[in-house]
């Protein structure tokens, strides 16, 4: 293989004119983190609502929840990304479509919404599983105390369900973080996109993707450590 290693490449100025290649990768990392956090906020809230709906007595609520989950988890993320970015603006009124297309940072907003809705379907399934794992008597006890349905969820079911599903939710968070790389297809300059452009400008493909890989691993380790602390702080005394 005729390849010239050059680990010093990170400190050479990038052709974009501002800063080095390292700065370029770090700005990509920043966008990755921003996209992951913003989309997780949507996924967590929306997923919790949809997951709760799937456990409600109301048939309409359960039906809506099921439809949501099946729609968003059965269409590939890449296809969803294209649908949100290329197809949706065309379906709206021309003025609204044009406004969306001209938004500054349109790829970022689109990626956040797309990932948020996609991951919400997965979060919803975790939340539903967590609630269904609780003894049936917990719901009865809350109801018998005079709690409304909303209060029973807020004070009794969800605090326990979230504790049960914390480990799989950590996985979902990590998945969501890594899925941000799909957004490079709609032009979001996140970490993978930045590694690719570094490779194209400098031809140092191995250095670029080694750095990207290490950065992904690094933030995932941070997340895992944080989740471990969270889990520890939420442990209930006396529970097995």
């Amino acid at each position: 293989m005729n390849y010239t290693w050059n680990w010093g490449i990170f400190f050479e100025p990038s052709p974009e004119g501002t800063g080095t290649y390292a700065d370029m990768l770090l700005s990509g990392l920043l966008w990755t983190i921003l996209t992951a956090l913003a989309s997780w906020a949507i996924a967590f809230c929306l997923g919790s609502i949809v997951g709760v709906m799937r456990t409600l007595p109301s048939k309409a609520a359960r039906g809506f929840g099921t439809a949501y989950v099946e729609l968003f988890r059965n269409v590939p993320l890449l296809v969803q990304m294209f649908l949100w970015y290329f197809v949706l603006p065309e379906l709206l009124l021309p003025a609204a479509g044009a406004w969306i297309k001209q938004l500054p940072n349109a790829p970022f907003y689109t990626a956040v919404i797309c990932l948020g809705f996609f991951t919400a379907a997965r979060v919803a399934e975790q939340v539903r599983a967590g609630i269904e794992a609780l003894p049936r008597g917990q719901r009865l006890a809350g109801t018998a105390m005079g709690f409304t349905v909303a209060q029973t969820y807020r004070y009794v079911l969800l605090p326990n369900a979230y504790r049960i599903i914390l480990p799989p939710m950590t996985s979902e968070f990590l998945n969501n973080l890594k899925n941000t790389s799909v957004a490079l297809t709609i032009g979001l300059l996140e970490l993978t996109a930045r590694a690719r452009s570094m490779q194209e400008f400098s031809f140092q493909v191995f250095e670029a993707f080694t750095a990207a890989t290490l950065l992904y691993v690094l933030i995932n380790v941070v997340v895992i450590v944080a989740a471990t602390f969270l889990e520890r702080s939420l442990t209930i005394p006396g529970q097995r």
């Binding site: 003894p135 008597g137 917990q138 009865l140 006890a141 809350g142 018998a144 005079g146 004070y155 009794v156 605090p159 326990n160 504790r163 209930i236 529970q239």
Partner: peptide, 14 residues
């Protein structure tokens, strides 16, 4: 206004 006691206690574990 109606107190209920269950077979499996159903205290709120958290």
């Amino acid at each position: 206004r109606v107190g209920m006691v269950f077979q499996h206690f159903e205290l709120f574990p958290h």
